[in-house]
């Protein structure tokens, strides 16, 4: 008895040390990787702080000797950045709302109603997710041209809604399907219409899934590039994402100003991300959303 416990102690101790060493090693590896990962983001900030007069950038501008906020003041006063910001909002918000309405209606039907061809319609909609957006730029441009939607916000809002709806349908259908049916069945027996059940029972219960769709689609619409590039040729209508292209010539010799523009573009997205991080994670894994 005594012999065995004596024999075990050094082994156990060694095992514990190895565990601690492993944990320290993991911490070190993660920290180093995180630092490397942050370099480009840090560089965006530091170059923006570089005085326009400085010619000797240390480590490409990662280290700045006399940091200044001048660049921000300069680009803010020289350019209508709030205008572009507003353009982005005018395009993004309606497209997100449209996705929420259209997708939740369809998801309700797919989750709760039996109707002719439901499997086929669902499969067709899901086909959208396999279509690379660049294959659609020629027809969408020509359609927009014919309908006078070039340089028109609707020329982006509607395609964004169409392209975003299928993914939202997946998330919402799986969420709706897992909600208990008892209340609805009772409401049915009371003669409640399907629309009323959707609007008054299902939607209020589904705000976590709706929040996921909202945030996900917001990021997608906000960061969409290729359609914005072909649809918006009038500078006054361009969303924020196209702004660096407008200025790439102007600020060629002044990287600090260019990077200040990049920083200003990025900050709102990062704030939204930090505030709503939880929903990003659950948005990627629809199944783990709790009802």
């Amino acid at each position: 008895m005594v012999a065995t416990s004596l024999a075990q102690t050094p082994h156990r101790r060694r095992w514990r040390w190895r565990r601690i060493a492993g944990r320290v090693a993991a911490q070190v590896v993660v920290t180093l990787l995180a630092l490397v990962w942050l370099v480009p983001v840090a560089m965006m900030l530091t170059v923006a702080l570089m005085p326009s007069s400085s010619r000797d950038a240390i480590l490409g501008g990662l280290i700045v000797k006399q940091p200044t906020l001048d660049n921000f003041g300069k680009v803010w006063s020289e350019n209508p950045l709030p205008r572009y910001f507003l353009n982005s909002l005018i395009i993004t918000v309606p497209s997100v709302l449209l996705v929420l309405v259209v997708a939740s209606l369809a998801a309700f039907a797919f989750a709760r109603l039996k109707f002719w061809g439901s499997g086929v319609w669902y499969a067709l909609l899901m086909l959208t997710l396999m279509v690379p957006i660049p294959t659609l730029i020629i027809p969408l441009f020509q359609i927009a041209k014919r309908l006078n939607l070039l340089n028109n916000y609707l020329g982006l809002i509607l395609p964004y809604a169409a392209l975003g709806t299928p993914f939202a349908i997946i998330i919402l259908t799986s969420y709706f399907s897992r909600l208990p049916r008892e209340i609805e069945d009772a409401a049915r027996l009371d003669g409640c219409s399907s629309f009323k059940i959707y609007w008054q029972i299902l939607l209020p219960l589904s705000w976590p899934a709706l929040a996921v769709v909202f945030i996900w689609q917001f990021m997608v619409s906000w960061n969409e590039f290729i359609l914005a590039l072909i649809m918006m040729q009038d500078d006054a209508r361009k969303p924020l994402i196209l702004v660096p292209l407008i200025y790439s010539g102007v600020y060629l010799t002044n990287p600090g100003a260019m990077f200040a523009v990049l920083t200003i573009i990025t900050i709102p997205v990062v704030i939204v991300f930090v505030l709503l991080q939880r929903y990003f994670v659950s948005g990627l894994t629809a199944g783990s959303l709790k009802g």
Binding site: L113, S118, L158, P159, A162, P166
Partner: peptide
């Protein structure tokens, strides 16, 4: 309800038809 479901998916199908299916034919 069998046909009612179609009304609910109609907006999604319309968007699909105009901005995905038609462009592919195009």
């Amino acid at each position: 309800g069998r046909q009612e479901g179609l009304l609910f998916v109609l907006p999604a199908l319309l968007l699909f038809a105009v901005f995905v299916a038609y462009p592919i034919v195009y």
